[in-house]
Write a protein that binds this DNA or RNA. Sequence first.
DNA 1: TCATCATATTAGCAATAACTAATATGTATG
DNA 2: CATACATATTAGTTATTGCTAATATGATGA
Lengths: 106, 106
Amino acid sequence: MRQVDIDTKMKFLHGLSNKTRIQILESIKEDEKTVSQIVQDINGNQSNISQHLSCLKGCGLVVGRQDGKYVYYRVRNQLVRDLLTMVDVVLEDVEKDVACCDSHVE
Amino acid sequence: MRQVDIDTKMKFLHGLSNKTRIQILESIKEDEKTVSQIVQDINGNQSNISQHLSCLKGCGLVVGRQDGKYVYYRVRNQLVRDLLTMVDVVLEDVEKDVACCDSHVE
DNA sequence: TCATCATATTAGCAATAACTAATATGTATG
DNA sequence: CATACATATTAGTTATTGCTAATATGATGA
């Protein structure tokens, strides 16, 4: 396996480290949305969401396209979608594992 | 797909949001190590590494076992290992994608 | 071209997180 | 039971991040 540059990797993972950003990703995981739709969707602040979208774009997690006065954002591709799904799957597994097996260690 | 609690998810993802923690995970991805081995391995500070290990344990990403005066840490299980691998895979794909297709958008 | 609407950017403040040094806990061994 | 060593915890400081409000940019259409 090739070695991925750690700083590039951190920049990428940084995209997943904030609640609002995760909410955005969940919101647009299946279909693209305009900024204002996202703002409504997750009940956020326009400036804030815009900044987070810019961050997510910088991380490569989402892409945007302008259509008239709207900008539509979507998750970059299926692989990124798969990664998001995998996070949920692994988390669920870990939760189960912790519940049953870590009790005596705590 | 079941809806994962967002705050639980954030706690989990927080484990992946720091460079030192990622270095730790990479260091113990294949085989377990003691705290001091990890400290050496990534050239870190004992207190700092210990705190990060505690964080990673809290996130469910790693587990520790005491053996005499040593504590061995390892990545929790194969699924977590797979997730770490997947991050690298997706990142690599995104990098390639950005390099070839996002230039005119930047 | 002016007014309006969608989005982006900036600046300043508030909240979190990370780091270091010092100290505490706990395990082994003479 | 005293000493040494491995790890954990705490406290204080610094650095990073996120938020909000205000303003700027850029597109549309009267």
